[in-house]
Design a protein around this nucleic acid. Structure first.
Lengths: 226, 226
DNA sequence: TCTACTCACGAACACTGTTCGAGTCAACTG
DNA sequence: CAGTTGACTCGAACAGTGTTCGTGAGTAGA
């Protein structure tokens, strides 16, 4: 027995006396750690190494619980989807209900900047996102929308939510706003008459006005399309 | 003069006699090479190293012409945008005109699989994409849509095109279709009654039916919203 | 007590984008 | 014509990425 082994045995002894066993790595620990990381530093900072480091281990340890980075991403949006409450269909208020669900999803995505990229890449067959699809489908059908229109509308609506939140997290820096306006005003009127004339209109939209506008457009179109 | 310099001089001599000077690297050569690469192997294969290798040089050489990888991405979607023909506004056919422009953009994106990711990340102030925004704005206004609605609708429409093409290039493999259907059918009816009942409807949509449906939804909603 | 078997993880591999600095070459300048 | 400037080229390297291999420890079952 060399000196190193000797030290290991002593360490083991200490562990027995103070059983602060290192907590085992689990999928849920990985997921919560990853989410905390994304919330604090954005989706780009989410690397296997950083998650592993936060769990005080090496990157290889994660692969016993998670197939891939893509797999981890899926788990994340699954967890986020699970936080969305899907209401029981109320035929009178189906539009508001859809807006409500989308709003919840939007807020979940916005809370974790950049995670919408994972949502866009995630397979639509994820069980947790399917729960939302199921709920939306119920709401649409209760509202009298045809199955075909409902199916395609759900696709469009979810796609929009992901796209919207993804773009929002890109333009996280607000100082762009003034700079952007200035640049747009520099455009030659000869080539960009409409843009220059409506600069302020183009960049308007406080809060989630654009978000609601687009979704209402989709839903209002639905009623006329039957 | 050592032996190496001597060899260099001789090489220079040969160059004079056969002036096959290595063509200089230009931005446009980089862009076309990159596009060819994306077309053949997808956006993920687009790395600075591979572009450089295709130009028979090292990655460092590119940075004299291109600030960033992100910069290169911008250049790519700029080039693609330049291939889109924006028609002069015809008040009677404004909806068809919008669909036409979006269809062109869609086809450009689909031709280069995965490049829509760059479109989503690209700043909306790109001069070439602004040309399309300008054109669309003209078409909408000619159609009698209010500037505010037009501005937000353009946003939604372009976002949808990017999202749609991005998703399409992800699910490039068609064999998923049958597999996906089978998986959906395995769902417990108790929890997913609507999804299970309308499985075939959910996965329906040949060609770009979904694409046109979603866009028409947006445009039809516009008329009622004024 | 011995044996499976799962999990932890150090080390390494093949990549990525990007920078540094030395070198080459053309064109303007005194 | 000589000299300098400035733009372009690019080998080498750095810091990071996802992922795999193989070793080793620990636990549960026979």
């Amino acid at each position: 027995m060399n000196r190193e082994e000797w030290a290991t045995q002593i360490a083991a002894l200490e562990q027995e006396s103070a059983p602060v066993r290192k907590e085992p790595i689990t999928v849920s620990r990985i997921v919560t750690t990853a989410l905390r990381l994304v919330e604090a530093e954005g989706f780009d900072a989410l690397t296997m190494r950083r998650v592993a480091a936060a769990l005080q281990t090496g990157p290889a340890s994660l692969y016993a619980h998670v197939r891939n980075k893509a797999d981890l991403d899926d788990l994340l949006i699954g967890t986020l989807s699970r936080n969305v409450a899907v209401p029981a269909p109320d035929p009178q208020r189906w539009r508001e209900q859809v807006l409500d669900v989308c709003g919840q999803l939007r807020d979940q995505f916005l809370r974790y900047p950049g995670i919408a990229r994972a949502a866009l890449s995630a397979p639509p067959a994820n069980l947790d996102t399917l729960r939302i699809t199921e709920g939306l489908l119920g709401i649409f059908l209760a509202g009298g929308v045809s199955p075909q229109s409902a199916a395609w509308a759900i696709d469009a609506v979810l796609l929009y939510v992901s796209g919207y939140t993804f773009e929002s997290s890109l333009r996280g820096g607000q100082p762009d706003r003034a700079e952007m306006l200035a640049r747009l005003r520099m455009l030659p009127v000869s080539r960009f008459p409409n843009v220059v004339e409506h600069v302020d209109t183009l960049n308007s939209g406080e809060g989630h006005e654009r978000f609601e506008f687009a979704l209402r457009l989709l839903l209002d179109g639905l009623t006329t399309a039957g």
